[in-house]
Design a protein around this nucleic acid. Sequence first.
DNA 1: TACCGTGAGGAAAACGGATTCCTAGTTTCC
DNA 2: GGAAACTAGGAATCCGTTTTCCTCACGGTA
Lengths: 340, 340
Amino acid sequence: MAETPGVVRITDVAALAGVSPSTVSKALNDTGSLRPATRARVREAAERLGFVPDAQARSLSARRSFTVGLLSTDSAGRFSLPVVLGAENALVGGQISALLATARHDAVREQHHVRSLVARRVDGIIVTGRTTDPRPPIRVPMPVVYAFAPSQDPDDASVVPDDAAGMTAVAEHLLSLGRTRVAYVGGRGDQAASVQRHAALAAALAAHGARIVGEPQFGEWSERWGRLAVDVVLGDHRAGDPLPVDAIVFASDQLARGGCDRLRDRGVRVPEDVAVTGYDDWEVMALASRPPLTTVDPQLDRLGQRAAELLLAAIDGRPAHGTELSPPRLVVRGSTAGDS
Amino acid sequence: MAETPGVVRITDVAALAGVSPSTVSKALNDTGSLRPATRARVREAAERLGFVPDAQARSLSARRSFTVGLLSTDSAGRFSLPVVLGAENALVGGQISALLATARHDAVREQHHVRSLVARRVDGIIVTGRTTDPRPPIRVPMPVVYAFAPSQDPDDASVVPDDAAGMTAVAEHLLSLGRTRVAYVGGRGDQAASVQRHAALAAALAAHGARIVGEPQFGEWSERWGRLAVDVVLGDHRAGDPLPVDAIVFASDQLARGGCDRLRDRGVRVPEDVAVTGYDDWEVMALASRPPLTTVDPQLDRLGQRAAELLLAAIDGRPAHGTELSPPRLVVRGSTAGDS
DNA sequence: TACCGTGAGGAAAACGGATTCCTAGTTTCC
DNA sequence: GGAAACTAGGAATCCGTTTTCCTCACGGTA
């Protein structure tokens, strides 16, 4: 093959600067001892030619690939996508490239992807999942950080959203508005997100002498269930009667949006009669809801970023252990406060 | 460095199969002349060990990296995500890995990513965008396929959703239901998706002797605008009066959902009085709408897959030129048909 | 002036594992 | 029994950057 056009090699830079390739390498990597003038001349030549060192050749001597794998069990990506993007973004800063591997919830495919990443000698892997339920660890000869879905092995490095902090913020927000009769509506009862959020809400309310009204309601993660759950919570309440609750905490924005719709249908005013909160800050839901939802933004991009930081540190020989919580952010909108 | 544990090399397979590395290579690549029995034995050994050839070493002799870049201008990814996933999926089949590069709508960052991909000697690049509006081409010394957002250069290989086909299907569906007084509500008037869909709808209706009632309405891609647009379309219509339209075609599911909500608020029955259609088949919108939306699924995963196929062909020396249309699929639900 | 230390830059080896000639050994068929 | 065809191994090859020596020149010191 003739030399590929458009690709600039270190020898081209060397020729333009009138030095040897090794000098170029030293100049660009700030190693060796060179006269400042030479260094500058080489730098300028590299700049002029738009030289970017060949990553493959680079990894040859460096014995690392400057590449990490992003393994996602969740191809649909409602949650893992922001995590992946956050991670990718943080990696770019460190001159690291991201290999995408989506396994669409299929163990065989995942195994295949893992092998492929190992074959490519990635420096590390970030594993994300579809839910916050702990997942089986992968066994690979390089550092791994689990993001969003933690590893079942508590010694592995994981970063998960701090749902307890999120729900505590919700509870304190509601209490500060004087709401004390709070109902909880979750999604699937077999998932950590439903259960943990309930537990955190109950604990936060209890800490201020309040508690959840009635049983927590579990169903599915859909607007439909949000609507139905409102009927369950309100029971046979009729317009004019005193309401059994003055706030409903939903475990997702979808649920909360369905809830708002149903409350409106039944003539219950939000937030005057009943305050409503969601979770996730999925803007397309939270903003389209009437009224817009007070919710918790889990800041998944930051979570992904943090996972990338931990992975880079591990690659650098400073591995982390255990599960780290990534802080959420309360977003107050019209469904609890009257101002919008 | 001692041999990294967990990494299976060709020598390991060779040892297990009791042959030499070169024999393993020939067996797995179907080259050279080997006894079928030997081939089978090697294959089994490779299978047992989970051998995946080191991509770097492979690229040494093959003079290609077996890696392609997925350059996305759209980090949020409502549309580019399915495209990227579809592409990634198609690539995996060809033993190709996907390097993710998201540029979040920033030319400088994009340039940086492009350089990085070139430095990694990717075999090709798939470029996706946030909208279907044509985008400036990138200049790189390897094949490029533009997916979703076509290149401004008509000679470049692009794959875009066939909105005309989608809207034609919508028009024919409505006409088959006897609806002839059709209004159109688009999103942003400066975007191709809004404008082209309108043109296609108008043309399809005209082909059957019908035409769009009133002016096309353009606004923004939100449920809010969908609601407002209904008021514009219905004008000062009051319950009981004959309606000015018997169908409203919205350019997105979000718009259509807002439209349905507003129609219901005003006492107009969907689909009995007015049929409603959306676009995108964004399930979280289309299914949560009351009634569920008849819509067009652009099948973006297939589009991404097709882009990957074209790229692989181009890498293989058979480049494509011009823009290819990727077929959509009409999804009929309760907002036009009564059955659900 | 001779010697040594040091700074600057070049030459060449190392990096890595799959691939691919080329050749030797083995079978098969007249 | 010999020649052709087949099978499989040995060793060179692939790539561009990094890194390790080395050399050479220069200046300071004895």
